[in-house]
Design a binder for these strands. Structure first.
Lengths: 208, 208
DNA sequence: GAAGTGACAAACTGCGTTATTCGTCACCGG
DNA sequence: CCGGTGACGAATAACGCAGTTTGTCACTTC
């Protein structure tokens, strides 16, 4: 259900799947990308940081963009983990869902303000429909479904409407708080308050 | 509250505000932009279509981009009008709000499929924060607030939570169905059904 | 056969130059 | 004063070329 990011199979991967070098490459690449951006780092530089030749990198990744996807997967994977951790915490489902909105917003804002270059990479990935990003939106849907189920099981939420439909709708309401492009636009208008307000309405809509 | 699009004042306008030529320019520009895109049309061509010189265009617009903004305002203005028409129709507030989701999605999809070039212009406008676009999101918020008020007045909706907060939250849930970038991404996954589902939850969240 | 490399062709980027296009201004005619 | 223009400098876009970077492959070493 929630693999660790490095275990996913992403397009453009190559060679042994579980290999220490693969992880080291991703970490080195992330550092460079964070600092200089995707365009301004060459794979030779990443290789040099690890003390190997660039040819060796290509034993693990089929292209530079594949490295970028892996970095992206790792980044989003960390958010996914935080999301699941919260979703499984010992609180009411309603409280967990409300916190999901907060958590999502918090992580998205953090990326926007602290690592603008990585944020821009994610935007690139978005309109090129990278698998790592689709995976992340799937996880958000799964978390939404899980929380709705939990709330139904505990009697907090109504049980009549089709689970899947409700889960998708809830996940849709996440987008203003997790989508990089929307975020950039609504950044000035107290997104925190908006997230709370949306959470409040949605929770009311779900309640038994 | 809802001016006709040509009457707004937009940055970069110049010369007489109510002038037949201004509207003719916007119409001619829209046709060219729709057909060839913003980048591939020159202001001389727009001028030629109207049988005037390009210098004359600059009596009305301070820059090419200002023309583009006016076209954008006109485009979005048509959507705004449809939204208001629906919002004032003689139906229950709940029904009107549900139809607002549909209407928004319908218009956005139409632009995406039929006039991709204009759609792309709107995206450009979005990350350059054109006034015409801010205006459109304001209108959507106003419509949301209006409908919530109506529903409260008629006893359909609860009356306790602060109106402004609720209106903003409702407007936030519009974004997956009206934001060009989000739309492009979620296009494959039955957006119509998603819109209905979101409407259902939000309406339940608003209900008395 | 796992770890690793140098040498190389193809693809891509940056950049300086040239050709368009943008936008201004002084000016014409009614 | 309103409707309109041609000629011109400034800003931009297109283009071709040199230099980098990407990505492959045959080969080495342990």
């Amino acid at each position: 259900m929630d693999l660790s990011p490095e275990q996913q199979d992403l397009p453009g991967q190559r060679g042994p799947h579980h290999h220490e070098m693969r992880e080291r490459i991703v970490r080195a690449a992330e550092a460079r990308f964070r600092h200089f951006g995707y365009g301004k780092t060459t794979v030779s530089e990443i290789a040099a940081d690890l003390g190997v030749s660039s040819a060796y990198i290509y034993k693990f990744f089929g292209s530079k963009i594949a490295i970028c996807e892996a970095v992206c997967a790792s980044l989003l994977g960390r958010i996914d983990e935080a999301l699941w951790a919260e979703a499984r915490s010992p609180r009411t489902a309603a409280e967990r869902l409300r916190r999901t909105y907060r958590l999502l917003l918090e992580h998205s804002l953090a990326m926007f303000f602290n690592d603008r270059r990585l944020h821009d990479m994610v935007i690139t990935g978005l309109d090129q429909r990278w698998a790592s990003i689709s995976r992340h939106v799937e996880v958000m849907e799964e978390v939404a479904r899980f929380l709705v189920q939990e709330g139904r099981a505990s009697g907090e939420f109504e049980r009549k409407s089709p689970l899947d439909e409700v889960a998708k709708a809830v996940a849709s309401t996440f987008s203003p708080f997790c989508h990089p492009v929307l975020l950039e636009h609504g950044i000035d208008d107290d997104p925190g308050a908006k997230a709370e307000a949306v959470a409040t309405i949605v929770l009311r809509g779900l309640s038994a």
